[in-house]
């Protein structure tokens, strides 16, 4: 991940890279992120721009998967926005109602945008969480795959 870190000409991080880490932070757990945060050098502080708040996202879908849009129902989502002393603004959005998780996701998003931290955090925080998520996804997939049907045709004895 760190080897291929894309940078824009102005030195800021590429959108796809940030989208990736935001998604990993959202799918991680609150405890996991708190533990990583405590491992960082102490004294890292941020201020709240938008206090952690639980609300709703209306989940949209499409008729027939591809057609007209409709509102399926809502999902609970918690969000938070913080600002580092160095000026980076981070946003955290997580499904569910865990405020600590949203706050930590926002804090990591802010810190990841600081170029002194980006590579380090991608390697030491984002990559291991991503690996864990991938592993559990693969384990599930292997179990599901065992339920795939192998069809075989029975020979009918009508011709003799």
């Amino acid at each position: 991940m760190t080897d291929t870190l894309e940078k824009n000409t102005d030195g800021t991080v590429d959108v796809a890279t940030r989208q990736h880490w935001i998604s990993v932070l959202s799918r991680s757990s609150s405890n996991e992120l708190c533990a990583y945060w405590e491992d960082l050098s102490p004294g890292l502080t941020y201020s709240m721009l938008r206090q952690p708040e639980t609300g709703l996202v209306m989940v949209r879908a499409r008729a027939g998967g591809k057609g007209q849009r409709f509102n399926l129902g809502e999902a609970s989502v918690t969000r938070c926005s913080v600002s580092m002393e160095t000026g980076e603004v981070g946003h955290g959005y997580v499904t569910g109602r865990n405020k600590r998780h949203a706050e930590m996701a926002a804090a990591f998003d802010a810190l990841l945008q600081n170029e002194n931290w980006t590579a380090r955090l991608l390697e030491n925080v984002i990559a291991p969480i991503d690996e864990r998520l991938q592993k559990s996804k693969n384990e599930r997939q292997a179990k599901v795959a065992s339920t795939k049907v192998d069809f075989f045709t029975m020979v009918r004895g009508e011709d003799e």
Partner: peptide
């Protein structure tokens, strides 16, 4: 597109505490 392009005025003013 830069990730910081949206960190313009207004998005960094805190709301209610």
């Amino acid at each position: 597109m830069s990730t910081q392009q949206n960190q313009v005025a207004g998005f960094s003013i805190p709301g209610f505490s």
